[in-house]
Structures are given as C-alpha cells and as structure tokens.
C-alpha cells in the first residue's frame, strides 16, 4: 500500500471577490521510501497542495477530495489526531534561508521542540538528539546555542533539515528547499537531502520550479499548471522528453549543466500563468502554448496515458500514444 495517496484533491480559497481555485482535482500516490517531485511556476498550486497535506492552510481555504496518509484521511481527522500526525509522521522543510526559523530562539531549542511536544524525549534526551541531528547535517554541536541570524543561509537550511528529521518521520515535504541559496550551497543541501532520505528510508515530496533539481533527486515527477496536474511520470524521462509543452518549457528554462546546446538556445515561456479566477476554457495552458491547435480552447483535457508509467494532459501526447 502506498504511504500517501491523494484522490481528487482540490483547494479553493474563498475571498471577498469570490472563489479562487488553487488546486483542481489532483490525484497522486507515493510509495514508502519513494521520492516525488512537484514542479510548476509560482501560482501553479504546488505549495498550496503541500500545505494541504498537513492541513496548514488558512481558514479561507476549502480542501476537497481525500488525502490518505497511511490509510488515514487527513482531511477528516480530529484536531488532536492531526496534531499528533504533524511532524511525527510527516514533517516539512521550508525555505529556512528566509523566515522558517524563529529569530529569537536558539536553534537547539527549535530542533528539540517537536520532540518535546510529541513527548518523544525527555529534555536531556532531546539535547543529545539535537547534537546527533546537527552532526547528521554537518553542523557542530555548539551551533545548538546559536540564533538563526548567526548562521549563513546554507547553515539555516541544514538546521531546517535537522529539524524535519527530529521525530524520524515517514514523510518529508520539502517546499523549495534550495530557493534563495547560491548554487554551490544548493548542490550541497540537495545531496544532503538525497543522502539522508535514502539512509533513513524516508519518503520525500519535493517542490520546486527547477525541473533539473527535481529530476536529480526524485524518482517520480509531477508537473502542475494552474492548479492541475499536467504531466506525471518517471522523473528522468519527464525531464528529458516531456510530453506536455509546459513541462518542455519548464525543462528548457534551466540550462543543463555540461550541455552547451541548452545554454546556446535558452527557451523561455512567454506570458504569465492565468488568473485562477478567470481560467481559460478547455486546456488552461492553450493561450501560452506554442503548439496549440483549434480544439485546445474547448476540449476537456485530461491526464491521458503517454508512454509506460506516464501520463500527460495534452492532445498531442494522446495522439502520439494512439499512433504508436
């Protein structure tokens, strides 16, 4: 059985001027020990989806569908059970380089907090565990007494990772864990995540706009556009030959290191993501799509099979599949 299963999950924000559909009917599943990458531009709904997994969205958000974590539906859980699941079963790595850490608390106390909250350790045990966790992420033990502002961005991100590991969860959700870090540090943090997740057999959901980063770390890749899944499949294949034109554009937006060709011909995507309150009819991507055909503005696109273990929400992908 899969560890996490999303079944037709939708998130709608109710604001003064109406309803904003942020996530629309996403179904995904994640096996224990597997790593799934979720890609998309800002506003594609990828972070909203991640926050929905632990019901961390603001009150204005209405979540539909089913989110099964280990067979339990997160959305219908009582609050007490929900709090017990949070961090102990699934934890989150935020962009620690920014504001993910409380600025006036020592980082040792912040790492120990979930252990003490969930009664997983007594204070002195928690202290030892903090030292252990800091070591795992390559930070010296005395850093436990530092404040976040005394650390560099990369070090803060390491603290975030140590914190996420504190309760030995089964799932870690990493929301843009390397954004706002410089390239070298980014690579270090990524390999650290990869290593620790593999070592502890933790499942990973990693969210990023950078397809190449996700392809490097994850087994499976899901691409989101305007709140919908537009492509899903094994990560290397999706990255190398995307079936959906949006995934193609996303993959081309970052030059492949070591491939001069990709640097010579950078291919950006024109236009902006659609306003979620005024989504275009048919395929939401058609106004920006370089290969759109007449039917795209009316056709109800769905995730059609697009090769072994792959799906894509594009008429071209379906056509190719039917031909072969």
């Amino acid at each position: 059985m899969s560890l996490l299963e999303l079944d037709d999950v939708s998130v709608t924000y109710r604001i003064a001027s109406g309803e904003v559909p942020a996530v629309r009917g996403v179904s995904l599943s994640l096996d224990a020990g597997a790593a799934l990458g979720v890609a998309g531009e800002s506003g594609s709904g990828k972070s909203t989806l991640a926050m929905a997994l632990l019901r961390l969205l603001p009150k204005e958000a209405r979540v539909g569908g089913r989110i099964l974590l280990d067979g339990d539906d997160v959305l219908t859980m009582k609050w007490g059970r929900m709090r017990a699941v949070r961090w102990a079963e699934a934890s989150i790595v935020f962009q620690g380089a920014q504001h993910g850490l409380n600025p006036v608390r020592k980082i040792g106390d912040q790492i120990a907090e979930p252990l003490l909250t969930h009664n997983l350790a007594k204070p002195d045990e928690a202290r030892r565990r903090v030292t252990e966790l800091l070591e795992q992420v390559g930070l010296p033990a005395w850093r436990a007494r530092s404040y976040p502002h005394e650390l560099s961005g990369g070090q803060r991100q390491r603290v975030m990772i140590a914190m996420a590991l504190a309760c030995s969860p089964r799932l870690i959700i990493a929301d843009e864990p390397t954004t706002a870090l410089d390239v070298m540090v980014q690579a270090q943090v990524l390999s650290l995540i990869k290593e620790l997740v593999a070592e502890h057999g933790i499942s990973l959901i990693m969210i990023s706009h950078d397809l190449s980063v996700l392809a490097d770390v994850c087994d499976q890749l899901a691409v989101m556009y305007a709140g919908r899944l537009v492509e899903h499949g094994p990560s290397r294949e999706v990255f190398r030959e995307a079936r959906h034109p949006y995934s193609k554009a996303l993959a081309a937006a970052f030059p492949t290191v070591g491939d001069p060709g990709s640097r010579m011909a950078p291919k950006g995507l024109g236009g902006d993501p659609p306003d979620p309150m005024q989504l275009p009819g048919g395929c939401s991507f058609h106004p920006r799509c370089p290969v759109a055909v007449d039917g795209c503005s009316t056709l109800d696109v769905q995730l059609w099979p697009a090769g072994p273990g792959r799906t894509a929400a594009c008429v071209h992908a379906r056509a190719e599949e039917e031909v072969s």
Binding site: R83, W87, G100, P103
Partner: peptide
Amino acid sequence: SQDYITVARAKGLRDDD
C-alpha cells in the same frame, strides 16, 4: 504571517502554544 509560525503549527503545537 511569517513562515516560522507555519513551521510551529506543522510541528504539531497547539494553537495556544
């Protein structure tokens, strides 16, 4: 509105805490 408040919630702390 800061992220660390969301982190604290995600850690499983009660709203009051």
